[in-house]
């Protein structure tokens, strides 16, 4: 069953993200398919072919700023969001199954301890966070380890908009239209050696820029990692934008990881280092509280967190809880990665 939503004209609610797009006056169709049988509840937004008028001139790709701008253009589908998003900021007793979480909520409800442990802190404390210039060091089992300028590293990738459910280990969830490119494209470019079995992502460690790091709530820097085959899954996304806009610092600018079938903490933010390894890397939360957070952290309603159930979740803005889906609803795409594994042990 596919639900298709026409790009209804935006009806002015205080949503700055849309105002900007509204001015572009682009007629566009967006299709959100939810729960189609072949996709097993997968949530995706498909864009029809981009009209030639919108195909961006190649020289625009020379600079990341422009790259991002172009990305926003390429995903102008986000300009005329389905009208369902408008309801998301209002009473939500009668909300549809997977409506987008409003931009304001996505960008002001953040677990980003580098900028404080309160969910509203990152937006305030990251307001002046500079992400240009930005380098990413590529290390470990790759053909050519190198410190890349971010613009060069992601040069040439076309951003896509992907609407994913985002499930936090704490029991809440959102639906977010991310802009980014599959991590597998980047990995292919970096050419890992045959020894590479894991990929590790390290967040910037600089307490002058990230004041939350002055407090030792976690062992900085924040490190997350994936098995190489998880990283190569087409769903795994390197994200540079949200809602067709540049990724705000509180969401992990300039570049972060999103793995939609795993709990949110797996998605490292403000990444400065990507390292390919033979052995399973030590990841921050699984080191901090091993009993509560494992390496895999797949969304799994049957495996509870020791302190709370994971069977249900609260979609932000809604009053009652809904059932959490196995692999956050992406079973068809990812279950083969875990064939034969005991997910109770490998939590």
């Amino acid at each position: 069953m596919g639900r298709s939503l026409h790009g209804a004209p935006f009806r002015g609610v205080k949503q700055n993200a849309f105002k900007e797009h509204q001015t572009l006056q682009t007629v566009f169709w967006t299709f959100v398919t939810v729960g189609s049988p072949c996709q097993n509840n997968m949530l995706f937004k498909f864009k029809p072919e981009i009209p030639s008028s919108e195909i961006t001139d190649e020289k625009l790709y020379n600079h990341r700023r422009q790259f991002l701008k172009a990305g926003a253009l390429a995903t102008i589908g986000g300009s005329l969001m389905p009208s369902s998003v408008l309801a998301a900021g209002r009473a939500t007793f009668f909300k549809g199954p997977d409506d987008l979480t409003p931009y304001e909520v996505v960008t002001s409800y953040n677990n980003f301890y580098e900028f404080g442990t309160g969910k509203d802190e990152p937006k305030v404390k990251a307001a002046r966070f500079k992400t240009d210039p930005w380098t990413v060091s590529i290390e470990g089992e790759v053909e050519k380890p190198k410190v890349w300028d971010l613009d060069e590293l992601i040069d040439g990738f076309t951003t896509q908009e992907k609407v994913y459910r985002h499930r936090c280990v704490e029991g809440w969830s959102m639906v977010v239209p991310w802009n980014g490119f599959p991590l597998k494209d980047l990995i292919t470019r970096l050419k890992p050696t045959s020894k590479a079995k894991f990929v590790e992502f390290t967040t910037l460690h600089d307490s002058r820029r990230m004041p939350g790091q002055l407090s030792q709530v976690l062992d900085w820097p924040y490190v997350e990692a994936l098995r190489l085959d998880e990283a190569m899954n087409p769903l795994t996304l390197m994200v540079t934008g949200v809602y067709g806009k540049m990724l705000p610092p509180q969401n992990g600018a300039p570049i972060r990881l999103i793995i939609p079938w795993k709990y949110g903490f797996k998605g490292g933010k403000s990444i400065v280092k990507i390292r390919f390894t033979e052995k399973q890397p030590k990841t921050t939360w699984s080191q901090a509280i091993p009993r509560e957070y494992g390496f895999y952290a797949n969304v799994n309603p049957k495996v509870d967190h020791p302190r709370w159930t994971q069977a249900k979740e609260r979609r932000l803005g809604e009053f009652t809880r809904r059932d959490t889906l196995m692999f956050n609803g992406y079973t068809a795409e990812v279950e083969k990665l875990y064939a034969g594994m005991d997910l109770r042990k490998n939590y």
Partner: peptide
């Protein structure tokens, strides 16, 4: 205010 759509609350239940 939230139910009227005049105020955005990230998580009203929380």
């Amino acid at each position: 205010q939230f139910t009227l759509g005049l105020l955005i609350l990230n998580d009203p239940v929380e």
